[in-house]
């Protein structure tokens, strides 16, 4: 693994150099333009090659990131996850994303880094999801349309075979987006109620599913993961959303790729293991007979 990381780090460094040179040329061009303003637009002559060189670098970086996912991460994932499938270019279907019932319909979306498999015998699927809302601004110069992300993170779907009546959502600073008649319910833990809002269509089921132990586990999970955490228990599925405004499994530009940064990729996988073990999804009562 070490030699492979070194190879990728070297390739990454070369691309980063290209991006730096491209940016440098663009910046120099702007400076020249300002300095030689009296001589017309000649100062901008370096801008076009600068931008092109920078864009080529960025595109190469994207390709390298994909290559890294296919060649390095895919291998790690298959070792960590039983029957593991990792497909960087695809993601969860929009149907699955909205089946969570905690995300509103997006005007624009992007999904990638599909990861599926079994951990401790528990089936799961997941992917990076980016959801954006369109905003239209009317100014005196006309209309400006822009998009604002309201969810950027990972969505997971786990098998959850503890049968109960109704539907349940445990959300951090959010509300359900569904036609079902969810009601807010308060559980006996003050800390839990402070951290999460619980919505259910059946109060008894909320208390049945959210045992004191499970509440404790959800709180621990929230503590260990940055961003907003959303859980929903719909039919035989447990959906988890981590809205941390982070693009998972991506190489970072200008950040050295070494063993410690590589560990961070692995940590993303430990999140899945955490959910399965902490929430005891691997307990036989939650598995299909």
């Amino acid at each position: 693994m070490n030699s492979e990381l070194i190879r990728f780090q070297q390739e990454k460094k070369n691309i980063e150099k290209q991006v730096i040179i491209g940016s440098g040329l663009s910046l120099l061009s702007v400076i020249l333009f300002v300095a030689l303003i009296n001589y017309g637009p000649w100062g901008l002559i370096l801008l076009v090659p600068g931008v092109i060189y920078m864009a080529l670098g960025a595109s190469k970086f994207k390709k390298l990131s994909n290559k890294f996912k296919h060649e390095v991460l895919a291998e790690v994932i298959t070792k960590f996850v039983d029957e593991g499938v990792f497909e960087p270019s695809r993601g969860l279907s929009l149907n699955t994303v909205y089946a969570t019932e905690f995300l509103k319909r997006a005007d624009r979306y992007h999904v990638e880094d599909y990861l599926a498999g079994k951990i401790d015998g528990v089936d799961f699927i997941s992917s990076d999801v980016k959801l954006e809302e369109r905003h239209v601004e009317h100014t005196k110069n006309g209309t400006r349309t822009y998009y604002v992300s309201y969810f950027l993170g990972r969505i997971f779907e786990f098998e959850f075979n503890k049968t109960f009546d109704g539907y349940l959502q445990v959300l951090e600073g959010a509300r359900p987006h569904s036609k079902r008649k969810y009601k807010k319910v308060k559980l006996e833990s003050i800390d839990f109620n402070k951290k999460f809002k619980t919505y259910t269509t059946n109060e008894h089921s909320a208390f049945y599913v959210l045992t004191p132990h499970l509440m404790e586990s959800l709180m621990d999970f929230e503590k260990n993961n940055k961003g907003k955490i959303y859980f929903s228990f719909i039919d035989t599925k447990l959906y988890l959303g981590i809205n941390n405004f982070k693009d998972t499994f991506e190489l970072k530009m200008f950040r050295e790729l070494n063993e410690s940064s590589f560990e961070e990729f692995k940590r993303e996988l430990y999140v899945i293991k955490d959910v399965v073990t902490e929430l005891k999804l691997n307990n036989n009562i939650f598995k299909k007979e």
């Binding site: 006996e188 208390f207 049945y208």
Partner: peptide, 17 residues
């Protein structure tokens, strides 16, 4: 019985809440 007990605990907790 363990499932029924969980339901009983849930009912008890809901009542107490």
């Amino acid at each position: 019985i363990s499932d029924v007990e969980e339901h009983l605990q849930a009912a008890r907790r809901l009542y107490n809440s």
